[in-house]
Amino acid sequence: MTEIKGLIYGTYPKSDELRIKIGRWERGALKGAEIEREISAEKKLKTDLFISTGSDYTDPLFNWYDIFRPFTCATEGISPGPLTRYKETNTFYRLPEVDHVGRMKINPSEFNEIEENPPLPMFQKNSDPKYFAFFPSPFSFFKMSKIKEDVTLEKFTAGMISIYSDIMKSYGFKNTLLFESLPYQGEDMSLLSPLIEKFKTILVTEGNLKFVDFTPIGKKLYSIAATSEDRNLEIASKHSIVPGIRIIDSHNTKIEDPKTVKETVNEEAEKAGLDSIYVTFNDYLDFLPFSIAAKKLEMIKGVIN
C-alpha cells in the first residue's frame, strides 16, 4: 500500500483576532515587540494544528505580507514597488524592484522591525524533522519582479540562494521548501543546486514538467510536488524520492471528500509505481477564509495514512 503523506506550505490565513491586532499595530496602537509576541503565539498554535494533521509543514508566515516581502524589504538592492496582482487572483503583492542582490540588511532570525512589513523573525525556531523552511523559488521571484537590466537570472538566483542558505544555517534548519508560483521557462535547474546539495529540499512546482530538465541538479530531490498535468507525477517520481501531487483546491471553499481524494491519489501512485507520495494544495491556503482553511486541514488528515 502506498504511504500518503500530507504537505502544508506557505502563508496561512490569520484569525480575525490577529488580523485586528495587526491592524492596530499598523495604526501605531501596538508596539513592534507586542505584535511580534502576538504573531509568535498564533504561529505556535497553528504549527501545533499542522502537526496534529500528521503532515509535513512550513511556518504559517503570519508576518509575511506577501511571499516575497521580507526579502523585498530587508535585502540590499531590493525595494518594494507598486501593488501588483498575484497571478490571476484578486490578491496583490508589492512588486520587488531589484537593482542588485546584496546581503540581508538585518539578521532575519532575530526580532527586527522593518519597513512595510510586520516585525521579524522570519520563521519560528523549529527542529521537528517534519518542518521545512519556506522560500519563494528564485526563478518565480525573478519573473515576478522588476529587474534592472544587468541583473541576470543567474546572478539573481545565486544571490537569493546564498541568502536562503545563510538563513537555513542561522536557524540550524535541515529541510527547505522552494515554492514556484509560475511555470518553468527553460531555466537551468542546476542554479538551485547549492541549496539542494546542502538541504533536504521539496520543490513545489507549477505547470507542465515535460520540458524541464532536472538532470543538471545531479541528485534526486527529496520531493517534487507537481500540479496534475499529464505525466507530471511520472517525471516527479523520476527526479525525487517522495513525489507529490497538488490536488487539493485552495482557491475554492468547497471541501473535498477525503475518500475521493484518497482514491485518486492511490490510483495515481499505483500508475506511477510509488511507495510513498505527498498530497498537497494547488496553492498556499491564504486565498481562503480562516474557517475554511481549518476544514481543509481536517480533510487532509482524512487522506493521509
Binding site: 490565513p13 490578491t91 508589492r94 475554511i292
Partner: peptide, 17 residues
C-alpha cells in the same frame, strides 16, 4: 460568507461562496 480573504498586506475583503 465564510469569512474574510486577504486582498493585500493586512487588508481583507468578504468573498462569498
Amino acid at each position: 460568507f465564510y469569512g474574510l480573504v486577504r486582498s493585500f498586506d493586512n487588508k481583507y475583503y468578504k468573498k462569498g461562496s
